[in-house]
Amino acid sequence: MRLGVIERIWRYPIKSMGGERLASVDVDERGLLGDRLYAVRDAEGRFGSGKNTRRFRRMPGLLRLHSRCPEAEPLPEPELLDPDGVPVADTTAFLRRYLRRGDVEVAREGAVSHFDQLALSVLSTATLDWMRTALAGIAVDERRFRPNLLIRTPPVTPAFVEDRWLGSQVRIGTTVCATFVRSSEHCVMVNESQQDLPHSPLVLKTIAQAHAMRMDALGTVTVPGTLGVGDLVTVIRP
């Protein structure tokens, strides 16, 4: 059964920052190669985010920054871009000035994963289009929800179709296989401003009222490979 095709691919080399849009990407058991491999970390070991928890430290403004992998092999430290999209020469010095914190640095993932939940996240255009209708007058696109893959679904597909995908094993393109396990519970990050997306508390409120703060599908990669824009996503085992 065909679910749709890949419309856009997003990778986020530094966690909680804006990502980079890709035409194709290699995928291994961890997820998209280089995705969230780095994070902003403070002296207490807490990671920069839009929220405060035992694990995260709220650092306003992170989403207005971007990161990208400077080479074909995304293992070196990513390149950081300022709010105007200009690469910065010294990542640590820039972040300390920008965040007004003298204890932050960009740290590579260690023994504890930087992923909040599972490695692969996908969102359907059906759900995204529903959000745009529900939030008429508020700028909404997939960047608010930070999926790795935006899947173009057929025109008659209902919103929150991702619920139907949970438990399925799928093939993405010709090689990559994944299993959709559960949806993610979104937080205040979806409300935050980034580039041309203004802050709006209505985004999370709408998701909460319509679908218990859940939208998208999270999965694990079972067969690595390469995927690209336009690749088919098909169910191989429901």
Rank of each mutant, 00 (worst) to 15 (best):
P155H: 08
L218M: 12
R64V: 01
A217W: 05
R46E: 07
E29R: 14
R55C: 02
G102D: 15
D116G: 02
I9E: 07
Q117T: 13
P158Y: 13
R21W: 02
S184G: 07
P87L: 06
P74M: 08
R64D: 14
A107T: 12
Q209G: 01
A39G: 14
A126W: 03
G225P: 01
V188M: 08
V122T: 12
G50P: 00
Y38T: 03
I172G: 09
D90I: 04
R100E: 14
P154H: 09
G19L: 05
M189N: 04
Y38N: 01
S200C: 03
T92V: 13
A111W: 10
C177H: 13
P74S: 03
R68L: 12
Q117S: 14
Y98T: 05
G50I: 00
A119C: 15
V229I: 15
A212S: 10
A212V: 02
A93E: 13
D196T: 11
C187T: 05
D103A: 03
W130I: 00
T226Y: 03
E162K: 06
G230P: 06
K205R: 14
A39T: 04
A210W: 00
R144T: 07
V112A: 13
G18E: 07
G61E: 02
V221K: 01
T220L: 12
T220R: 12
A72K: 12
L65F: 06
A72L: 12
M215H: 05
P201T: 10
